[in-house]
Write a protein that binds this DNA or RNA. Sequence first.
DNA 1: TTTCAATCTATTGTATACAAAGGACACAGC
DNA 2: GCTGTGTCCTTTGTATACAATAGATTGAAA
Lengths: 208, 208
Amino acid sequence: MSKIIKQTSLADKVYDVLKTQILSGELKGGMIIPEEQLATQYGVSRTPIREAIRRLSEYGLVILKPRSHAMVYKVDDKEAEDIAVVRVALEKLAIQMITPDSLEKHIEELSRLAADCQYHLTLGDRAQLFVKDSLFHLELVKCAENDALFDLYERLDSRVQLLRIAQDLSDNELSDIISQHPSLLQYLKKNDKDAALKLIEHHVAHNM
Amino acid sequence: MSKIIKQTSLADKVYDVLKTQILSGELKGGMIIPEEQLATQYGVSRTPIREAIRRLSEYGLVILKPRSHAMVYKVDDKEAEDIAVVRVALEKLAIQMITPDSLEKHIEELSRLAADCQYHLTLGDRAQLFVKDSLFHLELVKCAENDALFDLYERLDSRVQLLRIAQDLSDNELSDIISQHPSLLQYLKKNDKDAALKLIEHHVAHNM
DNA sequence: TTTCAATCTATTGTATACAAAGGACACAGC
DNA sequence: GCTGTGTCCTTTGTATACAATAGATTGAAA
């Protein structure tokens, strides 16, 4: 049994809920989140709520105004390009570090996630599509088997998710992007790094 | 007056102190930090201490064992190479994004920091040397004027600082590394990106 | 001696009470 | 009407009290 039983404190639970809500767009950028309100809403005291908010602030999803209020982080357009540039660089680095062995370990999951993306695209379920697309790219980076890289990419990915909610792409654009996942996997399987790198550059750039 | 007066809460102050102590090596990796002890030590209640520790955990400098204790993060050797690879990639990306204009804005500070490194090297003051070296590289990345990149690099830099404390280099190695800073600045001034990229790769690799 | 289990204790997790400060509102002065 | 000022009220910041549990300690059985 590889999975440790998650014995979550209230603060952890609230943290997870808030994070999910922010990344799904349920809590929109700029929204103010008062501690007391959340406390009554979730039937707990302010203490765990407060802890969750502070951690989210450290993670970069919440902005704290001292002695005033906490606000959901709002990405601005200027940031979009900044993020895209860094994202391309990190994914390219990840691809360069992938070996046939490491790919082997993750290819199954990658294929599944690519299929999931396709599935939710046909359903028109954008929320789930975005979730799966994020997971696909996270899994891709995980192939590099570099914890430091993965850690940084994970943080960047939160921002990417926020951006995706803000600026909604057309169905065609979305379809194009998602259809590139299988191609990427093909290149990786053939160990054709150059093609993969070229594709990912185009893929991420168009995505944002 | 560009600087906002920092009106710090107790939690913020504790956070800053702990962070500095961890990054300076005063609090060593693996050390356990009990909330109550810090509370009495700093003459405050557990609440702000707790908040600081949790935030440090989210930042990656503290490991939390639920219902047990908090521990200063301990880098392991396997991680060193992971970090080095990512670090090179990020610094190279930053260099690629530097323009003559942006360099102009930061060159003075960069030169000053390079000189500071040299100064503390001759004094043999490693602690200060490391601080200044970190600041040099942070400033270098700042030249790229990409907030997302800087944010990620800053986090990575914390780990780099932890590593430097753990594995101490010889005086010769240190000297070599520091002496490369002015060369790098020369290349950047001449806008010779290739030379700068080559140097930084060598520089960071040797640094770790 | 070793091992296991019951108990105890020190520490974390949560709730609550109170202090302090920012923002909203009303109102006076221009 | 606009601006500034003082008060009130809401919300955050901190302290403290209590609950719950992981880890240490003890002691009994093999």
